[in-house]
Each structure stands twice: as C-alpha cells, then as structure tokens.
Design a protein around this nucleic acid. Sequence first.
DNA 1: GGTATTGTTTGATGCGTATCGTACCAGTAT
DNA 2: ATACTGGTACGATACGCATCAAACAATACC
Lengths: 115, 115
Amino acid sequence: MTITAALDHSDVDGAAPPVAEITHLLQALADPVRLELLRALAGSDHPISCGNFQVQVTKSTLSHHLRVLREAGVIEQRCDGTRKLTSLRRRDLDERYPGLIQSLLPTPAEAVAAS
Amino acid sequence: MTITAALDHSDVDGAAPPVAEITHLLQALADPVRLELLRALAGSDHPISCGNFQVQVTKSTLSHHLRVLREAGVIEQRCDGTRKLTSLRRRDLDERYPGLIQSLLPTPAEAVAAS
DNA sequence: GGTATTGTTTGATGCGTATCGTACCAGTAT
DNA sequence: ATACTGGTACGATACGCATCAAACAATACC
C-alpha cells in the first residue's frame, strides 16, 4: 500500500492540513467504525467530544480512529478544557471532492430504518 | 475488519451480484491500483481485457485486484473466446450510491495534467 | 495538594491482504 | 496432438492495521 502520509503537519495556530489524496482519504473512510464517526459528525451541527461517540470500541481505539481521520483531513479538533471537540471539515472535503461525502451518508430511507 | 462478503454468488446465467455494502465497496476502492483500474474503465466506452490495463503489477496480482472489484460489485466480466472483457457496472453503482463514482474520477484539470 | 475526567501513547497480538512466482486450465491457432 | 495466449488458483512472504490494556499527560474540581 505505502501511501506516505503526513507531509506538512502545519498545526501552527490551528491551520488544518490539506485534505489527503483520494487513495489516502478512501482508506481512512473504508472502516466501519470511522464511517460511523463520519456519519455522526455529519448528522450533528455541533462538534462532538470523544466520550459522546456511540461506538463499541475502547477509548484508545477510538483515539486511533480519530487520528486517522484527522491525518486524512476529514476532521479537525479543538481543545476545550479537558475535552476535545471534533468536527467534520465538510467545506474542505466538498471543495476537494465534490459529492463524495454526500454519497457516503445514509439515505433518508436508511436513516428511518436505523431509528 | 471482517466485513463478511460474498453472500449470494448468483452467477447464474450472468446475473451480477448486488453492489456491496458501503464499507465493503470503499475498501475495494481504497487501493491505488484498483482506483486506477476503475478510472481506466470509467474513461473507456468499451470493455477492457486483462492485458490492456496499463498497470505495473504481474498478471496474478492484476487478477486478484479484478476479483476484489468483481466481488464488491464494481465490475462485471464476460468471456470472449480466450480473453475476458471487463466493464464497469456504472449504472448499478450510480443507482445504489449516487455521486460516489463521479467524485472519484479525475477532474478535467487532473486529466489534462496526466496527459 | 489530591482526585477525577478526558485523551493520547506505547507495546503486544492477531488478522487481513498486496505482492510475487509457479503451476494450472481453457480456448485458439499451427 | 502441439504450442501459444489469456487468465485463474495456490503457496509463501511481508507489511499494514484494528484492537486492547496499561501507562502517561493535561485540565478541572474539591
């Protein structure tokens, strides 16, 4: 696979790194847990803290998945006291890959079925 | 990961299996070689035989990648004498995941840059 | 200070898979 | 039949990564 990542790491004053290349991005999204995180973030208008994700993995695993998403440019995180608020970089993603995120979100029918 | 695949295998008289679930599908597309195959197929109006893919892998590896794409419902193949013609299941993919394939194809700018 | 609370990091483990070479099989042509 | 061509199947190898537990770090609160 190889896909060498993490080119710039310009976390300086919150500047988010660029959205990853398509293969790297797809690899980040091709995991059930991470896709669930993406959908949770896309369905919420406010950022979500680590503890508020409804996911059946330990917190260390969750931290790992969030790192993968962050390094692929999918999410950004800002600290808020002892917690860390995660939000989707929807604008950047839509700009770079128009239609991609939308096509990964549950359809209205699926959303109803999941309720 | 797990994602148990291959539910029905109804290869009966050429009936293609359903397009895979989203995670399975993304996993099939999250590989540089397979994405290149997808783009080659999407950019051609006629099916492509195994030997006509411009990919730097051995034929056994290529066969493996085509199998992954086939089992994810991305492509279909029909035999033609001694060769096997591969084509993209664009209609089925667009029906199940509208906008997804389009968002993975090179933009006009990228297509020019690759020439 | 001491104690939760929230996340990250590290190491270990096990599974998946991309890759190759070789052998094999089905058509086609000689 | 023999040989060639296009593709698959198998075994081996190496690497990636999802997962967890435990240890650590940083902030808040008493």
